[in-house]
Nucleic acid binder design. Structure first.
Lengths: 256, 256
DNA sequence: CGCGTTTTTGACTTATATCAACTGTAGTGG
DNA sequence: CCACTACAGTTGATATAAGTCAAAAACGCG
């Protein structure tokens, strides 16, 4: 259940038996949500930290005219609102993109981790800092890159994040995001996303169906995107330049 | 010397004598930098945390074609690279916009704070989380708002941040950012920034000279920007809706 | 099969970029 | 104090990436 989170954290630091046990015991309750529902809304102060167990969600915020910006995607293993242990309320909402299962980690468990499991606490803060780095790089992506490069960059990021969470071994990932979803994240209209996707397909970089995205040419896509995985801070498994976005040799297989 | 940082942190939590003393003793060394120099560059792993004491700087990253995105501004009281205590290396650079003085806080001091001053540590992490929230809201700003609203939003943010750091009492702040600087942050060309600024001036919202920015009509500017200070998480001094962006009544005067 | 959603296509518009010249301003040194 | 320089700001003309509108086609669920 906490497999993907654990897999991700181990990219920062190897965790020992006790730490893994603590982490595994942390989510005391599960909650099932339909697609399009809110895990948390802006202004709320959630009583527990939400962990993505199944499905996709996004951080989003709406302007008064109804247009909405997606500020980040959440996949299996991501913590939705760890930062709210420090900030009293959410400044954005988290909405599900697919049907989703979240685990609820009570605040006491977080405090327990901070007090008694400092290495695990560091790993969790590391993942928070990575989230911050991702947010900063989305500024770069939206602000500076062409539409085509933006889409390519997002796909590269998602591929690496899926690999890091141990969710895929190859270059194919489930892709429940509609072109409208992609547009909200990349600040493009659905129509334009569509045309850009067609170009990426024509170039032989990706294959994309309603449910699956395959990166056919990781190097090519990286080049279009000017993607550099450094910002994902996979300290032990640094992105190399030899076709794979992350180094498979170093991947630990966890018996979960 | 750590006045603005302290003032900022006290917006989260009142600190006691010992915590203030620890904080004041934290920067062991000062460094003077010319305008346009790098405090840290992407890829580096700085041995100490840098605190902005005087001047302006920005987080930035360059793409291969030479164009650069500013991902955030740093003013007096901001910590440049606290997150590098957890991430091994910088994924972006920090460049000075004016001549700057930074204080160097050795990593041991940070560790000492985390171990022996948990409330102070929480306050520092709070400021990190606020930085993350600011980054997310820049995504919103660049992605969704018109050029005019973007400029207005940035000015609102700077005004509040200056107030929070106790650097101004009125609505006038030093403004060393050139129109090109603003453009790099807002993803607009200098030419377009210029035209937008003229419109904001015509509407009587701001006065802007080479060195000073005055917000003439905070409410008006807030409306243009759809600015909502919630994302700055001034838990105790929440932004109100009565003309002032933050509540002056609650402001503590610190004898520093 | 039928209906809602998503994707695709085409025609047209627009906000912002680009290019290029000119003006103002501040600082420097003779 | 003026000439010189360098940079910042301003203006106008033109270009373009991406947006808008609208309708058709494809998909997929009940």
């Amino acid at each position: 259940m906490i497999g993907p989170l654990l897999e991700k954290l181990q990219h920062y630091k190897d965790l020992d038996k006790h730490e893994i046990k603590m982490l595994r015991a942390a989510p005391t309750q599960e909650k099932r949500l339909e697609r399009g529902s809110y895990i948390i809304e802006a202004g709320e102060n959630p009583p527990a930290v939400h962990l993505m167990i199944e499905g996709w969600a996004c951080r989003c915020k709406m302007l008064s005219d109804g247009r909405e910006q997606i500020m980040g995607y959440l996949i299996k293993g991501d913590l939705c609102d760890l930062h709210v242990t420090l900030l009293s309320r959410m400044d954005h909402s988290i909405r599900t993109i697919t049907a989703t299962t979240v685990g609820m980690v009570p605040e006491e468990s977080i405090n327990r981790i901070i007090e008694d499991f400092p290495r695990l606490a560091r790993a969790l803060f590391w993942s928070l800092m990575v989230d911050e780095a991702i947010a900063r790089h989305w500024i770069l992506n939206i602000g500076l890159r062409s539409a085509e490069a933006r889409v390519a960059h997002l796909f590269c990021e998602l591929l690496v994040r899926f690999q890091v969470a141990g969710l895929i071994q190859d270059h194919t990932l489930e892709m429940p995001l509609t072109q409208a979803n992609l547009g909200e994240a990349l600040s493009l209209t659905p129509v334009h996303v569509n045309r850009v996707l067609q170009r990426l397909r024509q170039k032989g970089l990706i294959r994309l169906t309603r449910k699956e995205l395959t990166i056919l040419d990781p190097e090519g896509l990286k080049n279009v995107a000017e993607f550099d995985a450094v910002y994902l801070h996979l300290d032990k498994n640094l992105a190399n330049d030899k076709g794979e976005l992350i180094n498979k040799k170093e991947k630990r297989i966890l018996s979960l």
